[in-house]
Design a protein around this nucleic acid. Sequence first.
DNA 1: GACAATCCATACTCTTCCGTATGGTTGATT
DNA 2: AATCAACCATACGGAAGAGTATGGATTGTC
Lengths: 192, 192
Amino acid sequence: MNVSSKPERTRLSAEDWELAALQLIAEQGVGALAVEALARQLGVTKGSFYWHFRTREALLNAALERWEQYGEREIISQIEQIADPRKRLPELFRRVAHELQPHRVYAALLKALDHPQVVPVMARVSQRRMEFLTTAYREAGLAPPQALNRARLTYAAYVGFLQLNFTLGLPRINHEEFDAYVEHMIATLIPA
Amino acid sequence: MNVSSKPERTRLSAEDWELAALQLIAEQGVGALAVEALARQLGVTKGSFYWHFRTREALLNAALERWEQYGEREIISQIEQIADPRKRLPELFRRVAHELQPHRVYAALLKALDHPQVVPVMARVSQRRMEFLTTAYREAGLAPPQALNRARLTYAAYVGFLQLNFTLGLPRINHEEFDAYVEHMIATLIPA
DNA sequence: GACAATCCATACTCTTCCGTATGGTTGATT
DNA sequence: AATCAACCATACGGAAGAGTATGGATTGTC
């Protein structure tokens, strides 16, 4: 039951700080990552923090590294297990669409691309995903140049959707409408 | 010739501060908008600033309002003058693609969606553009629900592209490749 | 149960940046 | 030429947050 934030009176590890940092980033952005605020939230003081980390930067880097490592393993491997290549992309779209929770950190980091620490991480992650999409489109029948551009378009649409919808709260699309939108995306972007 | 920043030894107006603020936002983001930094850049001190504006917030609001007013008039009116509705969207795509400069502020504000002052501005601007796109798609022959979803998809792709390319510097797409990408977008998103 | 190593609290310093107070300078007006 | 408003410089006060110093508490280990 120790998921929340109040009364966990055990001692903390570096991992605890990293996880709390990621959660805070997801909720309030990288700019809100202040050590005293985090300490309050964890029920300790700065004294604890500076035992585990040399600096605030170090925490950010550690948290980003953790996120990059354990962030996307599951979905990609799940999709790769689908036998028919033509069924992979629709399944990917639908699955991503209904797991918007793990994308919160990505959306937050997208808004923090002025911080030099996050740029390389985001570049690597985005690059990997783009490559995954590109090969998926090739396997779905597109010629290589088409596949690359379609992957660019798809990934841009994904990123833009994140920004427009749970960062900005645009026209608060509801569930049915959202499902229809996803199907529209599938019909428009994926070759028949 | 007084475009740059060094030796303009006339007195400043509120407008000067607003324009400088927008430029700084475009280059370094909303977070970098500090009054002393701006003052240095303009060759004056804070004393000047606090004569023109009551607070830093006031400057940000004024700058945002100015941007919202004079930001997008031209392109929309130009597009609306095109007679054949089916030629409007391709032209819009190509024109937007080759004027990425005015989109710098929009991209910067996209990353500042945690600041409560920018959210309403961005919501209004994005909403207007979305509506423009939606009617354009209807005029190009799509049924209303399809048109709305296609507009969502298109605008998300636009926003995502901004983030991925001149905020993050993803795979540094070159000119030819970029033109090909734009044509791919047109072929994929606009009904024939 | 002593004794390290680990973990944390308290109390500082230092920097940055917003905002204020106040007086000086410049320019237009008469 | 005098005057008044517009504009700016200088010197503060104060809050917030990073980082340091140091000692106290807790935990495992012999």
